[in-house]
Design a protein around this nucleic acid. Sequence first.
DNA 1: TATTGTTATACTCTATAACTATA
DNA 2: TATAGTTATAGAGTATAACAATA
Lengths: 164, 164
Amino acid sequence: MTPRPADPARRAEERQLSPVDGLAQLSFLIHSLLERRAAEHDLSIIQTRLLGVLRDRRPTINELGHLLGLDKSSVSGLVERAERRGLVSRSPSPADGRSVLVSLTETGRALVDRAAQRFGADVSDLLGHLPRSEQRALTGLVSRLLVAQAADEGIELCPAPSVP
Amino acid sequence: MTPRPADPARRAEERQLSPVDGLAQLSFLIHSLLERRAAEHDLSIIQTRLLGVLRDRRPTINELGHLLGLDKSSVSGLVERAERRGLVSRSPSPADGRSVLVSLTETGRALVDRAAQRFGADVSDLLGHLPRSEQRALTGLVSRLLVAQAADEGIELCPAPSVP
DNA sequence: TATTGTTATACTCTATAACTATA
DNA sequence: TATAGTTATAGAGTATAACAATA
Protein backbone atom coordinates (compact mmCIF):
# COMPACT_ATOMS: atom_id res chain seq x y z
CA MET A 1 0.00 0.00 0.00
CA THR A 2 2.08 2.86 -1.19
CA PRO A 3 0.19 5.74 -2.65
CA ARG A 4 3.26 7.93 -3.08
CA PRO A 5 6.56 7.58 -4.88
CA ALA A 6 8.70 4.95 -3.23
CA ASP A 7 11.54 7.27 -2.39
CA PRO A 8 12.05 7.20 1.37
CA ALA A 9 14.43 10.15 1.35
CA ARG A 10 12.08 12.50 -0.42
CA ARG A 11 9.20 11.43 1.70
CA ALA A 12 11.05 11.70 4.95
CA GLU A 13 12.54 15.08 4.19
CA GLU A 14 9.68 16.79 2.44
CA ARG A 15 6.80 15.97 4.65
CA GLN A 16 8.42 14.44 7.72
CA LEU A 17 7.53 10.78 7.65
CA SER A 18 4.71 9.83 9.97
CA PRO A 19 5.68 7.40 12.72
CA VAL A 20 3.60 4.66 11.17
CA ASP A 21 4.99 5.21 7.68
CA GLY A 22 8.52 5.27 8.99
CA LEU A 23 8.24 1.96 10.78
CA ALA A 24 6.44 0.40 7.83
CA GLN A 25 9.09 1.53 5.39
CA LEU A 26 11.93 0.42 7.62
CA SER A 27 10.28 -2.95 7.90
CA PHE A 28 10.02 -3.32 4.15
CA LEU A 29 13.54 -2.12 3.62
CA ILE A 30 14.94 -4.77 5.92
CA HIS A 31 12.68 -7.39 4.42
CA SER A 32 14.01 -6.53 0.97
CA LEU A 33 17.60 -6.77 2.20
CA LEU A 34 16.94 -10.31 3.35
CA GLU A 35 15.14 -11.15 0.14
CA ARG A 36 18.04 -9.91 -1.92
CA ARG A 37 20.65 -11.90 -0.03
CA ALA A 38 18.51 -15.00 -0.13
CA ALA A 39 18.04 -14.62 -3.87
CA GLU A 40 21.81 -14.54 -4.31
CA HIS A 41 21.73 -18.18 -3.27
CA ASP A 42 18.52 -18.97 -5.14
CA LEU A 43 16.62 -19.11 -1.90
CA SER A 44 13.15 -17.77 -1.20
CA ILE A 45 12.38 -16.17 2.13
CA ILE A 46 10.64 -19.30 3.32
CA GLN A 47 13.48 -21.58 2.21
CA THR A 48 15.87 -19.28 4.05
CA ARG A 49 13.74 -19.43 7.16
CA LEU A 50 13.62 -23.21 6.91
CA LEU A 51 17.41 -23.43 6.77
CA GLY A 52 17.70 -20.85 9.55
CA VAL A 53 15.42 -22.82 11.82
CA LEU A 54 17.48 -25.95 11.21
CA ARG A 55 20.72 -24.29 12.26
CA ASP A 56 20.33 -25.44 15.82
CA ARG A 57 17.47 -27.89 15.66
CA ARG A 58 16.58 -31.27 14.25
CA PRO A 59 12.82 -31.03 14.24
CA THR A 60 10.09 -33.25 12.88
CA ILE A 61 7.87 -32.12 10.03
CA ASN A 62 5.19 -31.30 12.54
CA GLU A 63 7.52 -29.19 14.67
CA LEU A 64 8.68 -27.36 11.57
CA GLY A 65 5.08 -26.57 10.81
CA HIS A 66 4.70 -24.85 14.15
CA LEU A 67 8.03 -23.06 13.90
CA LEU A 68 7.26 -21.72 10.44
CA GLY A 69 3.53 -21.29 10.82
CA LEU A 70 2.74 -23.69 7.98
CA ASP A 71 0.57 -26.73 7.49
CA LYS A 72 2.40 -30.03 7.60
CA SER A 73 1.61 -30.64 3.95
CA SER A 74 3.27 -27.34 3.05
CA VAL A 75 6.30 -28.30 5.09
CA SER A 76 6.41 -31.65 3.37
CA GLY A 77 6.81 -29.97 -0.01
CA LEU A 78 9.19 -27.33 1.31
CA VAL A 79 11.49 -29.98 2.74
CA GLU A 80 11.16 -32.10 -0.36
CA ARG A 81 12.42 -29.26 -2.56
CA ALA A 82 15.25 -28.41 -0.18
CA GLU A 83 16.22 -32.06 -0.05
CA ARG A 84 16.23 -32.30 -3.83
CA ARG A 85 18.78 -29.47 -3.80
CA GLY A 86 20.89 -31.25 -1.21
CA LEU A 87 20.35 -28.61 1.47
CA VAL A 88 18.58 -30.75 4.06
CA SER A 89 18.14 -34.42 4.77
CA ARG A 90 15.37 -36.52 6.22
CA SER A 91 15.94 -39.40 8.61
CA PRO A 92 13.51 -41.63 10.46
CA SER A 93 13.00 -40.79 14.10
CA PRO A 94 14.40 -43.43 16.43
CA ALA A 95 11.82 -42.47 19.04
CA ASP A 96 8.69 -42.55 16.88
CA GLY A 97 8.28 -44.69 13.80
CA ARG A 98 5.87 -42.21 12.27
CA SER A 99 8.15 -39.20 12.55
CA VAL A 100 10.91 -37.84 10.38
CA LEU A 101 13.81 -35.73 11.60
CA VAL A 102 14.96 -32.95 9.30
CA SER A 103 18.50 -31.62 9.47
CA LEU A 104 20.88 -29.42 7.50
CA THR A 105 23.45 -30.97 5.22
CA GLU A 106 26.91 -29.44 5.14
CA THR A 107 25.97 -27.70 1.93
CA GLY A 108 22.84 -26.32 3.50
CA ARG A 109 24.69 -25.08 6.54
CA ALA A 110 27.33 -23.36 4.47
CA LEU A 111 24.63 -21.69 2.43
CA VAL A 112 22.59 -20.39 5.33
CA ASP A 113 25.66 -19.28 7.26
CA ARG A 114 26.81 -17.25 4.35
CA ALA A 115 23.41 -15.71 3.70
CA ALA A 116 23.02 -14.85 7.38
CA GLN A 117 26.45 -13.29 7.50
CA ARG A 118 25.73 -11.15 4.46
CA PHE A 119 22.34 -10.11 5.70
CA GLY A 120 23.80 -9.22 9.09
CA ALA A 121 26.37 -7.06 7.36
CA ASP A 122 23.62 -5.32 5.40
CA VAL A 123 21.74 -4.42 8.55
CA SER A 124 24.96 -3.36 10.25
CA ASP A 125 25.74 -1.11 7.30
CA LEU A 126 22.31 0.36 7.52
CA LEU A 127 22.78 1.07 11.21
CA GLY A 128 26.19 2.48 10.42
CA HIS A 129 24.53 5.53 8.96
CA LEU A 130 23.86 6.69 12.49
CA PRO A 131 26.47 7.71 15.06
CA ARG A 132 27.25 5.14 17.76
CA SER A 133 25.21 6.83 20.44
CA GLU A 134 22.14 6.91 18.25
CA GLN A 135 22.61 3.30 17.23
CA ARG A 136 22.49 2.40 20.89
CA ALA A 137 19.43 4.53 21.43
CA LEU A 138 17.62 2.98 18.48
CA THR A 139 18.51 -0.55 19.52
CA GLY A 140 17.30 0.10 23.02
CA LEU A 141 13.99 1.53 21.85
CA VAL A 142 13.45 -1.34 19.44
CA SER A 143 14.15 -3.87 22.17
CA ARG A 144 11.65 -2.25 24.47
CA LEU A 145 9.07 -2.23 21.73
CA LEU A 146 9.55 -5.93 21.07
CA VAL A 147 9.42 -6.76 24.76
CA ALA A 148 6.23 -4.81 25.21
CA GLN A 149 4.69 -6.41 22.15
CA ALA A 150 5.59 -9.88 23.33
CA ALA A 151 4.21 -9.22 26.77
CA ASP A 152 1.00 -7.99 25.18
CA GLU A 153 0.30 -10.64 22.63
CA GLY A 154 2.22 -13.65 23.78
CA ILE A 155 4.30 -15.34 21.13
CA GLU A 156 2.21 -16.75 18.28
CA LEU A 157 2.90 -14.28 15.50
CA CYS A 158 5.92 -14.34 13.27
CA PRO A 159 8.51 -17.02 13.95
CA ALA A 160 10.83 -14.18 13.11
CA PRO A 161 14.03 -14.74 11.21
CA SER A 162 17.20 -13.48 12.76
CA VAL A 163 20.91 -13.75 12.50
CA PRO A 164 23.38 -14.89 15.10
CA MET B 1 16.67 -17.64 9.85
CA THR B 2 15.89 -18.05 13.47
CA PRO B 3 18.03 -20.46 15.37
CA ARG B 4 16.48 -19.67 18.71
CA PRO B 5 12.96 -19.82 20.12
CA ALA B 6 10.75 -17.22 18.52
CA ASP B 7 9.93 -15.41 21.73
CA PRO B 8 11.03 -11.80 21.38
CA ALA B 9 10.46 -11.00 25.03
CA ARG B 10 12.64 -13.77 26.35
CA ARG B 11 15.31 -13.08 23.83
CA ALA B 12 15.36 -9.35 24.39
CA GLU B 13 15.40 -9.61 28.15
CA GLU B 14 17.66 -12.55 28.68
CA ARG B 15 20.47 -11.77 26.35
CA GLN B 16 19.82 -8.21 25.23
CA LEU B 17 18.88 -8.43 21.60
CA SER B 18 21.67 -7.60 19.21
CA PRO B 19 21.03 -4.54 17.04
CA VAL B 20 20.75 -6.69 13.94
CA ASP B 21 18.38 -9.18 15.55
CA GLY B 22 16.23 -6.40 16.95
CA LEU B 23 15.75 -4.69 13.63
CA ALA B 24 15.16 -7.99 11.87
CA GLN B 25 12.53 -9.04 14.38
CA LEU B 26 10.82 -5.67 14.29
CA SER B 27 10.69 -5.94 10.53
CA PHE B 28 9.06 -9.34 10.65
CA LEU B 29 6.65 -8.27 13.32
CA ILE B 30 5.40 -5.36 11.26
CA HIS B 31 5.29 -7.50 8.15
CA SER B 32 3.15 -10.02 9.97
CA LEU B 33 0.80 -7.28 11.17
CA LEU B 34 0.20 -6.26 7.57
CA GLU B 35 -0.19 -9.85 6.48
CA ARG B 36 -2.78 -10.47 9.16
CA ARG B 37 -4.86 -7.43 8.27
CA ALA B 38 -4.67 -8.23 4.60
CA ALA B 39 -5.78 -11.79 5.26
CA GLU B 40 -8.85 -10.46 7.05
CA HIS B 41 -9.99 -9.26 3.65
CA ASP B 42 -8.69 -12.30 1.79
CA LEU B 43 -5.84 -10.28 0.36
CA SER B 44 -2.27 -11.37 -0.09
CA ILE B 45 0.54 -8.90 0.51
CA ILE B 46 0.98 -8.36 -3.20
CA GLN B 47 -2.74 -7.84 -3.79
CA THR B 48 -2.72 -5.33 -0.97
CA ARG B 49 0.21 -3.52 -2.49
CA LEU B 50 -1.53 -3.46 -5.83
CA LEU B 51 -4.61 -1.83 -4.33
CA GLY B 52 -2.41 0.54 -2.33
CA VAL B 53 -0.56 1.68 -5.40
CA LEU B 54 -3.87 2.35 -7.15
CA ARG B 55 -5.13 4.60 -4.40
CA ASP B 56 -3.80 7.69 -6.08
CA ARG B 57 -2.76 6.45 -9.51
CA ARG B 58 -4.27 5.10 -12.70
CA PRO B 59 -1.26 3.35 -14.15
CA THR B 60 -0.79 1.10 -17.14
CA ILE B 61 0.18 -2.54 -16.71
CA ASN B 62 3.73 -1.62 -17.55
CA GLU B 63 3.86 1.14 -14.95
CA LEU B 64 2.43 -1.23 -12.38
CA GLY B 65 5.24 -3.62 -13.19
CA HIS B 66 7.80 -0.98 -12.33
CA LEU B 67 5.95 0.16 -9.22
CA LEU B 68 5.63 -3.37 -7.88
CA GLY B 69 8.86 -4.78 -9.22
CA LEU B 70 7.11 -7.45 -11.28
CA ASP B 71 7.14 -8.62 -14.86
CA LYS B 72 4.25 -7.40 -17.00
CA SER B 73 2.95 -10.95 -17.32
CA SER B 74 2.83 -11.26 -13.54
CA VAL B 75 0.96 -7.98 -13.32
CA SER B 76 -1.44 -9.17 -15.98
CA GLY B 77 -2.45 -12.11 -13.84
CA LEU B 78 -2.50 -10.10 -10.65
CA VAL B 79 -4.85 -7.55 -12.16
CA GLU B 80 -6.95 -10.26 -13.74
CA ARG B 81 -7.57 -11.89 -10.37
CA ALA B 82 -8.30 -8.56 -8.70
CA GLU B 83 -10.69 -7.68 -11.51
CA ARG B 84 -12.48 -11.00 -11.17
CA ARG B 85 -13.12 -10.06 -7.54
CA GLY B 86 -14.41 -6.65 -8.55
CA LEU B 87 -11.61 -4.75 -6.84
CA VAL B 88 -10.08 -3.08 -9.88
CA SER B 89 -11.11 -2.32 -13.44
CA ARG B 90 -9.29 -2.12 -16.74
CA SER B 91 -10.01 0.52 -19.35
CA PRO B 92 -8.36 1.23 -22.68
CA SER B 93 -5.96 4.15 -22.68
CA PRO B 94 -7.21 7.08 -24.73
CA ALA B 95 -3.62 8.11 -25.41
CA ASP B 96 -2.22 4.78 -26.61
CA GLY B 97 -4.29 2.06 -28.21
CA ARG B 98 -1.99 -0.62 -26.88
CA SER B 99 -2.21 0.43 -23.25
CA VAL B 100 -4.64 -0.35 -20.49
CA LEU B 101 -5.35 1.86 -17.50
CA VAL B 102 -5.98 0.10 -14.20
CA SER B 103 -8.01 1.75 -11.47
CA LEU B 104 -9.71 0.91 -8.19
CA THR B 105 -13.41 0.20 -8.08
CA GLU B 106 -15.41 1.56 -5.18
CA THR B 107 -15.31 -1.87 -3.61
CA GLY B 108 -11.55 -2.01 -4.00
CA ARG B 109 -11.08 1.42 -2.50
CA ALA B 110 -13.25 0.63 0.47
CA LEU B 111 -11.31 -2.57 1.03
CA VAL B 112 -7.85 -1.04 0.86
CA ASP B 113 -8.86 1.98 2.93
CA ARG B 114 -10.11 -0.28 5.64
CA ALA B 115 -7.08 -2.53 5.59
CA ALA B 116 -4.76 0.47 5.67
CA GLN B 117 -6.65 1.99 8.55
CA ARG B 118 -6.48 -1.22 10.53
CA PHE B 119 -2.83 -1.74 9.79
CA GLY B 120 -2.05 1.86 10.76
CA ALA B 121 -3.84 1.30 14.03
CA ASP B 122 -1.79 -1.83 14.64
CA VAL B 123 1.47 0.03 14.19
CA SER B 124 0.19 2.90 16.31
CA ASP B 125 -0.70 0.46 19.04
CA LEU B 126 2.73 -1.05 18.80
CA LEU B 127 4.30 2.39 19.17
CA GLY B 128 1.92 3.12 22.00
CA HIS B 129 3.91 0.77 24.18
CA LEU B 130 6.52 3.50 24.48
CA PRO B 131 6.07 6.84 26.23
CA ARG B 132 5.51 9.84 23.96
CA SER B 133 9.03 11.15 24.22
CA GLU B 134 10.50 7.83 23.21
CA GLN B 135 8.07 7.48 20.34
CA ARG B 136 9.36 10.78 19.02
CA ALA B 137 12.94 9.68 19.50
CA LEU B 138 12.35 6.40 17.70
CA THR B 139 10.53 8.05 14.83
CA GLY B 140 13.32 10.56 14.41
CA LEU B 141 16.00 7.90 14.36
CA VAL B 142 14.07 5.77 11.89
CA SER B 143 13.58 8.75 9.60
CA ARG B 144 17.27 9.53 9.62
CA LEU B 145 18.07 5.92 8.87
CA LEU B 146 15.74 5.89 5.90
CA VAL B 147 17.08 9.18 4.59
CA ALA B 148 20.64 7.96 4.83
CA GLN B 149 19.77 4.68 3.15
CA ALA B 150 17.99 6.43 0.30
CA ALA B 151 20.90 8.80 -0.22
CA ASP B 152 23.21 5.83 -0.32
CA GLU B 153 21.41 3.49 -2.65
CA GLY B 154 19.01 5.62 -4.63
CA ILE B 155 15.48 4.30 -4.86
CA GLU B 156 15.25 0.96 -6.62
CA LEU B 157 14.61 -1.46 -3.77
CA CYS B 158 11.27 -2.10 -2.16
CA PRO B 159 8.31 -0.14 -3.48
CA ALA B 160 7.47 -0.07 0.20
CA PRO B 161 3.91 -0.27 1.44
CA SER B 162 2.75 2.48 3.71
CA VAL B 163 -0.36 4.00 5.13
CA PRO B 164 -1.67 7.53 4.80
C1' DT C 1 -8.62 -44.27 17.79
C1' DA C 2 -5.30 -40.64 17.29
C1' DT C 3 -1.14 -38.91 15.21
C1' DT C 4 2.64 -38.41 11.57
C1' DG C 5 3.67 -37.76 7.24
C1' DT C 6 2.64 -38.04 2.20
C1' DT C 7 -0.19 -37.42 -1.76
C1' DA C 8 -3.92 -35.45 -4.70
C1' DT C 9 -5.98 -31.34 -5.88
C1' DA C 10 -6.59 -26.51 -6.43
C1' DC C 11 -5.26 -21.88 -6.31
C1' DT C 12 -2.00 -17.75 -6.06
C1' DC C 13 2.18 -15.85 -7.55
C1' DT C 14 6.14 -15.54 -10.42
C1' DA C 15 9.09 -15.64 -14.71
C1' DT C 16 10.23 -16.75 -19.66
C1' DA C 17 8.87 -17.10 -24.18
C1' DA C 18 5.70 -16.73 -27.86
C1' DC C 19 1.99 -14.24 -29.67
C1' DT C 20 -1.37 -10.01 -31.04
C1' DA C 21 -2.29 -5.59 -31.86
C1' DT C 22 -0.87 -1.00 -32.01
C1' DA C 23 2.77 2.65 -32.78
C1' DT D 1 10.71 -2.45 -35.93
C1' DA D 2 9.53 -1.67 -31.27
C1' DT D 3 6.27 -1.54 -27.52
C1' DA D 4 1.96 -2.96 -24.64
C1' DG D 5 -0.46 -6.48 -23.19
C1' DT D 6 -2.04 -11.40 -23.10
C1' DT D 7 -1.41 -16.24 -23.07
C1' DA D 8 1.00 -20.72 -22.58
C1' DT D 9 3.89 -23.08 -19.75
C1' DA D 10 6.51 -24.23 -15.77
C1' DG D 11 7.56 -24.03 -11.13
C1' DA D 12 7.38 -22.53 -6.03
C1' DG D 13 4.42 -22.06 -2.25
C1' DT D 14 0.17 -22.64 0.23
C1' DA D 15 -4.10 -25.08 2.15
C1' DT D 16 -7.70 -28.81 2.46
C1' DA D 17 -8.86 -33.41 2.28
C1' DA D 18 -7.93 -38.20 1.84
C1' DC D 19 -4.77 -41.69 2.76
C1' DA D 20 -1.05 -45.11 4.80
C1' DA D 21 1.66 -46.39 8.58
C1' DT D 22 2.52 -46.24 13.33
C1' DA D 23 1.22 -45.44 18.18
